[in-house]
Design a protein around this nucleic acid. Sequence first.
DNA 1: CTGTTAGCGCCTTCAC
DNA 2: GTGAAGGCGCTAACAG
Lengths: 360, 360
Amino acid sequence: MSRSHKHITIQDVARAAGVSVSTVSRVLNGKTDVAPSTCERVQAVIAELGYTSSLAARSMRSRRTGVIGLIMPNLEDPFCIEVLKGVNHAVFDLHYDLIAYTSGAMNGHSKASRDQHYVSLLNGSLTDGVIVVTPSTADFATSAPIVAIDPNSASARYPKVIAANQAGARKATEYLIRLGHRRIGFIGGREDLQSARQRLDGYEHALRQAGIARDPSLIETGDYSVESGHACARRLLLLPRRPTAIFAANDQSAFGAIEAAHVAGLSVPGDLSVIGFDNIPEAATYKPALTTMDQFIARMGYVATEMLIRRVQGVRLESEWYEMATQLVVRDSCGAVAEGTPGMGAPALADWTQAEAERR
Amino acid sequence: MSRSHKHITIQDVARAAGVSVSTVSRVLNGKTDVAPSTCERVQAVIAELGYTSSLAARSMRSRRTGVIGLIMPNLEDPFCIEVLKGVNHAVFDLHYDLIAYTSGAMNGHSKASRDQHYVSLLNGSLTDGVIVVTPSTADFATSAPIVAIDPNSASARYPKVIAANQAGARKATEYLIRLGHRRIGFIGGREDLQSARQRLDGYEHALRQAGIARDPSLIETGDYSVESGHACARRLLLLPRRPTAIFAANDQSAFGAIEAAHVAGLSVPGDLSVIGFDNIPEAATYKPALTTMDQFIARMGYVATEMLIRRVQGVRLESEWYEMATQLVVRDSCGAVAEGTPGMGAPALADWTQAEAERR
DNA sequence: CTGTTAGCGCCTTCAC
DNA sequence: GTGAAGGCGCTAACAG
């Protein structure tokens, strides 16, 4: 199988088969103008030598490489992982290859530096096109097809797929209202993301619709992390009149909020209802299982890949913009507001400080 | 920022800076023999044009590309995801770039076809080296450095990192024994994996040590999936004398086992103790939180990356073989065996069929 | 049908 | 210090 320790190239194949490199190249690319006998012989040699053409060389010479790139800001983020799964799936179905690219950014690499990496990949034309998750820039210097998932700016000029955030957030809030809640806290996310703003919109819209007065103190802004969810929820629960429900704009914030509730000695959903957004896999196994808005993240990845590959193949997209519908997933973290809910109208302060003290 | 729609190449930079391409190449690669003034000017032009050298061209010409590859068999697998995180982290710390490669395998692509992809990547010298997770082949036809994580065969000739599976499984089983369990079921995994066999070894070793007779009917072989864990546990629980505890050789099997227990109307850990292996993130949030052996998967990825990069840089490894220690993580899925545990000595059949019927 | 000839963008001698 | 020339592995015109 493996005997040589040197790269074996198209030349080696040509020599072994007694033909020229171009002939080998032809059979490699499935050109039809090759004599069957020659073709067969070359195939045999290729198989025997275990030769595979170099992506680097190939992509330098030809337009099409058959691989698409995925650029993700943060591999620790379940959202990205879900996207990755969906893209992976699509790439498989469509007979492409995937190269997932990350500049190792976990703690905020500078945007400029990340963009540098993006361009590097694109510029290299290593890939036929690229999917960018929550891009930090609205404008890439490249001619290669790009599709964005959950872009940060409405002005992005390339095709994008994004969830129906406004409608989803509205539905989530309405669900809480239907459960009898009137004081509903909101934990938002990174303000640079379009989706975060849309979810806040949806929340406010639902409240207005229900005739509930807007209370700015019920609106917290975090960064979509568990920690920030915890911190935001803590502030909410310390309010003179604490909310009976919290809508966290992503699942991780919701986890943080539930954590905070437990620290405060509040039970979920008994004393506090919490609804999330995303429906990441952990939501189903969390304790309590999280009621949330599914935005079908993996499917977003799948759709984005389809769009990209269509563009790569020169097909005009019927729409530059795909909106993924959302769906309420009812699990165990929300309940109807009880008549005499403890804490209703009083801060959870007492429980909290006691609980905190115990943790020391 | 982005104005041109054409790839801008080193030539463009050279022209704009009024120097030759070789000079640009020199400053690009930090050669010292360039006049400071020239260097500065070139840098400025590079920045202004937003130029980045093409990975494809670079990797074709020079030995070092500064990127390492990661080949994973299956993105749906939490194990792989964890490895990915660890590798990503290390790559960041060591100032390399990462290209994660997957042949889109979810449903078993043939091994041959996957290997084809592996070789393609390696052969292309796009990367300086590659990390392979649970490789399906013990022998790659390439000279590029490789490090394997959790290899399938002891005979693999390249450096590897693997958990102390035997010792870990022993500790897990001993823990169950210490809890008073005597009938301990085992749910194993893919037999092609070295790790799976080692875990079975550890289990049997611990039993022998404790003077517990070996009962082949207590040993089930699955494939590390939730479904197979469920199926295996079902068989175990249907035994004339069902086990009071189950050691599942990975966390997903353990989840499946817990599922099966619930379907049978058995509570965990009340009626049945279940311990896993891996400590994937879901283990902590599962209900009940899973007691398991931590094998520090992400750290395995980190270590593998360090080993690989050391090899890439020509440093001789002190050892070709890194064994990751394991550690017991006690959570809520195991309990002491109760005196009159219901079902002890009797199959769970009655409950089962009833429960199954209800699900229809 | 097949071989020959140009490069793709870049790095590396080797001159000047 | 800097430029010119050659070639990495491959594909895409051209010739035969």
